[in-house]
């Protein structure tokens, strides 16, 4: 045993992982936000060139000589600026269109998602606060806070009509079965619209200006539901209920208006993606994309031009993950390595 140990001795210094340079950001670039392992400050940005299939790791750190921080939650673009929402570092990093840091928005408590309501103003959702932050994009500072009903707000969408601009926000609370409507001009909550389930977290808008809301939290016995809502009259067009063992994670809408729902079964280490046709009245019985046991599907996005589906695998959250590209039939086309816990996508157009 001793001899074999000596023979198998490994040198102390590990081999450095080479980083394959940087690629240009152009209209066929996919930016992947890697959360990193929670608490370890290992958030990174992966850049994938969809025209060449080349991938580049740790892009932000290479360009800026500093790490992103802890938990890169989401990526938003407003004009020529990118906003990297870094949840557990309580900040948003602002970069130019080449990913060079230009500014930092501080004092944001556990920020989650950012939504530009116009070129000068954005809303930021957060955890552990009964607030949505209002950001002045001209000087990148927090200028206001909107009080909301839950201490956890998630995705938001912007819809405009003749009466003004409105932001619809998800209040991720198991006691809440509505979404909140905020007047983006006055920053006032103006309505609460009931949906078909509790704990709304994901929201997308269709081309016909209707909303789809994914809700549920099976740890608190709130079954996953998908509500189709007409915000013009607050009518629920349909509610689809999923199998209660599955936790709802992500929602995306494709070019045809069909929905993709990513779900996980924590206890049994299973993941899958349902495809819900826009006219469906019940949940599909089988997955559109089924992950092998142990795979942890963690991010979902649809490339707007090709309608291809991008799914990330966070694996065990303590090693580098993978992004997979599927065509609209659900066939795997390509996969790329990423950083740790890839969760968010931004398709540069």
């Amino acid at each position: 045993m001793t001899i074999s140990l000596f023979l198998s001795c490994k040198k102390d210094k590990p081999n450095d992982v080479s980083v394959a340079g940087l690629g240009a950001i152009h209209s066929q670039t996919l930016l992947v936000g890697n959360e990193g392992n929670f608490g370890s400050g290992t958030a990174t940005l992966t850049q994938i060139d969809l025209s060449t299939n080349a991938s580049y790791q740790n892009v932000y750190a290479q360009l800026n000589d500093e790490g992103i921080g802890d938990v890169l939650q989401s990526i938003t673009r407003v004009g020529n600026a990118y906003y990297l929402v870094v949840n557990n570092s309580n900040k948003i990093i602002v970069t130019d269109n080449k990913m060079r840091k230009t500014s930092e928005i501080k004092n944001l408590n556990q920020a989650r998602f950012m939504l530009a309501v116009n070129s000068n103003k954005a809303y930021v959702s957060s955890i552990y606060n009964y607030k949505i932050y209002v950001i002045d994009l001209t000087n990148n500072t927090k200028v206001n806070e909107i009080n909301v009903d839950s201490n956890w707000t998630e995705e938001m969408v912007l819809l405009s009509d003749a009466s003004g601009d409105y932001v619809y926000t998800c209040n991720y609370d198991t006691a809440i079965n509505y979404i909140t409507k905020i007047n983006a001009n006055t920053d006032q909550v103006v309505d609460r619209i009931t949906i078909g389930g509790y704990a709304p977290s994901r929201i997308v808008k269709s081309t016909d200006n209707t909303l789809w809301i994914l809700a549920g939290n099976n740890f608190f016995n709130k079954t996953a539901t998908l509500t189709h809502l007409d915000p013009s009259n607050n009518q629920r067009l349909s509610t689809i209920t999923f199998n209660p063992t599955w936790s709802p994670e992500h929602l995306a809408i494709d070019r045809n208006g069909d929905l993709l729902v990513l779900v996980n079964d924590y206890n049994n280490n299973k993941s899958g993606i349902y495809k819900v046709p826009k006219n469906a009245t019940a949940a599909p019985s089988t997955f559109f994309i089924t992950a092998s046991t142990g795979t942890y599907l963690y991010g979902l996005g649809i490339e707007p031009v090709t309608n291809d589906i991008f799914v990330s695998d966070a694996k065990d959250f303590t090693q580098n993950g993978t992004v997979m590209r599927y065509n609209s039939n659900g066939d795997l086309i390509q996969s790329w390595p990423t950083g740790i816990a890839p969760s968010s996508f931004y398709f540069v157009q």
Binding site: L5, S8, K10, D12, N269, S292, T293, G294, T295, Y296, D313, K315, D316, T318, Q319, N320, T322
Partner: peptide, 25 residues
């Protein structure tokens, strides 16, 4: 040496790798 010996899922890169925070020396 404290290494993971079994692939826990497809694409697991931890097999044969040192368990985090255990120094070899």
């Amino acid at each position: 040496l404290a290494t993971s010996e079994k692939s826990n899922f497809v694409g697991d890169s931890s097999v044969g790798k040192q368990v985090p925070y255990i120094p070899r020396y």
